[in-house]
Amino acid sequence: MPDKKYVTIFLEGRRIRVPEGYTVIEALWDTGHDIKRGVGCLSGLCGACAVAYLEPGGKRVKFGLGCQTIVKEKMDITVMPFFPSRMAKYDISNMEKPIDKLLEIYPELNMCKSCGFCSVACPEWINVSKVMSYLKDGRYEEATEMMFDCILCGLCASRCPRGIAPQIISLFVQRAIEKDRPVPENLRNRLKEIEDLKDEEIWGNILKMDEKSLKDFCEKVRKESD
């Protein structure tokens, strides 16, 4: 093994030394920091480990996920596990056409001036600012599709000079437009079949089968599908 190389980083202003190649989370653990908030899936999916950092010589603060960001020499880092975002109260199951209520529920949407600060912060590389303009223009499908990858880390909300939470607003839209779509035919047919107890007799037989006859039965059914 070659000698381990080390880098010096600043964690919330405090200097620590960690081996090269560690992620921010690994660096924290390696130096004995007992962090529970700010850790989750360790695969860049849960959005719990948002971090902000300044690189040496860098002019502006950058953002990322602690489990995916590799530390570099003289990096200045802070962990941002939480940022308050306004969540409206609504009962979407009992709403007639929820998408029409968007501006009633989240009037702050119209305060967005497309400054683009949110897009710069997104660790998932979503153009959040564009999503917001789509939402304002009523292009809900396109906006929703762009937000599929959102992991609710809240970094966009933390950057918004107007205190808007794009990740929360788009979540309402995602739900609302689905409510507008018709029930898929294949699902409706299957539910009808189940309601009519179509397979009831087969189920009765299956539950009575011993292992041998169950094996034969399974083989037969699975062959039919080939």
Binding site: I92, S93, T144, Q174, R175, A176, I177, E178, K179, R181, V183, L187, L191, I194
Partner: peptide
């Protein structure tokens, strides 16, 4: 049925 429930909650 679970699929229907999820879709009623707005799962797309």
């Amino acid at each position: 049925q679970i699929v229907k429930w999820l879709m009623d909650l707005g799962v797309n």
